[in-house]
């Protein structure tokens, strides 16, 4: 009988999707008799804890503390201390977090503080039971290779799971019957103590129109465009198709377009119906951000570009000439 502890996340008082995804991932390592619990941390986790109780778990640990507001993201001192205290008391064999801003900051520090092992950005995990040593799979070298690791003997085995790899039907809504999960208050005030770093302010830089993460159609440009002006033309196409505009890191770093448009391992992850790329070579760091796209379309003058290996449709040619023909036909088809 081993314990698997999931660490859900709270945004604006509500549970995010990652909790359900972790509950699904936990099935891969849960043996008969293993217990699955979820931790919910916030300044006021009441509503989120009730949502978490609808997940397929037996216990919800609800941790309330003012320093856990906004996920305690002002340096993450508070959630690290709270989670380490919970682990010390409950002795989980496995701790799973999302590979999100929260999870990728909190997970490694908790593992280090407890002297155990940590695996980042896992896309698969396997074990007969949680007391076993888990084997995890993670992309490395920017997605060029996959690595399978196995944890050594120290518990807890801490891992972050790449979002949207495990895909349940979202967070159970209020219509879902409450499971048998018991909500237990866990007091972490002593462990949290005084936090050293603090959050001064959060500044939203909302992109106008459809969010990249939610868009059905994403149009994107890269180094091959050669400058900032072409992005205005891509924006035009994006508007006609009702999509969102993306870019490669190279284009963002060159200052041609704002970093809010960056797609890739260190940018946004998208999962549109179709991802149409102009002048993007398809470095694996970029492809890691669009692996969720149902269809990738590549327009690139280099027939050997990596993007053609991942694409379903492609045109080898000058982006501007291809775009001219493409846009004209799209306008005819859509009447926009």
């Amino acid at each position: 009988m081993a314990l698997i502890l999931l660490v859900a996340e709270v945004e604006g008082g509500s549970l995010t999707d990652i909790g359900g995804q972790l509950a699904l991932a936990a099935k891969n390592v849960a043996g008969a008799g293993d217990e699955i619990a979820v931790a919910v941390m916030s300044d006021d986790p009441t509503a989120a804890a009730e949502s978490a109780a609808r997940l397929d778990v037996s216990t919800v640990f609800s941790i309330a503390h003012p320093a856990l507001a906004e996920g305690g993201t002002g340096g993450f001192d508070a959630p690290v201390s709270a989670l380490a205290a919970l682990c010390s008391e409950k002795q989980p064999s496995v701790v799973l977090l999302g590979k999100t801003d929260f999870g990728s900051n909190v997970g490694p520090r908790v593992a280090f503080r407890l002297g155990s092992g940590f695996a980042q950005d896992c896309i698969d995990l396997r074990a007969e039971s949680a007391a076993d040593r888990i084997a995890i799979t993670r992309p490395v070298h920017g997605g060029n290779a996959m690595a399978v690791y196995r944890f050594r003997d120290r518990d807890p085995q801490v891992a972050t799971i790449r979002p949207n790899v495990f895909d349940p039907e979202g967070v159970p809504d209020e219509g879902t019957p409450t499971g048998a999960a018991e909500i237990v208050q866990f007091d972490a005030a002593a462990a949290i103590g005084e936090t050293r770093s603090r959050l001064i302010e959060v500044v939203a830089e909302e992109s106008k129109g459809v969010r990249l993460e939610d868009a059905d159609v994403v149009i994107s440009g890269g180094r091959g465009l050669g400058g900032p002006a072409p992005f205005e033309r891509l924006q035009e196409l994006t508007d006609i198709l009702g999509g969102a505009l993306g870019a490669s890191r190279a284009a963002c770093d060159a200052g041609w377009i704002d970093h809010g448009h960056q797609i890739g391992l260190t940018g946004k992850s998208i999962s549109p119906r179709v991802y149409i790329t102009f002048g993007i070579s398809g470095a694996s760091q970029h492809m890691a951000g669009c692996s969720g796209a149902k269809a990738i379309v590549a327009i690139n003058k280099d027939a050997d570009a990596n993007i053609f290996k991942e694409a379903r449709f492609g045109v080898v040619g000058d982006w501007e000439k291809v775009l001219n023909g493409f846009m004209a036909t799209v306008q005819e088809l859509t009447g926009n």
């Binding site: 340096g75 770093s197 959050l199 500044v203």
Partner: peptide, 12 residues
């Protein structure tokens, strides 16, 4: 840097 904006954080 966040995906949609930024936070200002202070630490000793």
């Amino acid at each position: 840097a966040l995906t949609d904006g930024y936070q200002v954080v202070e630490a000793p």
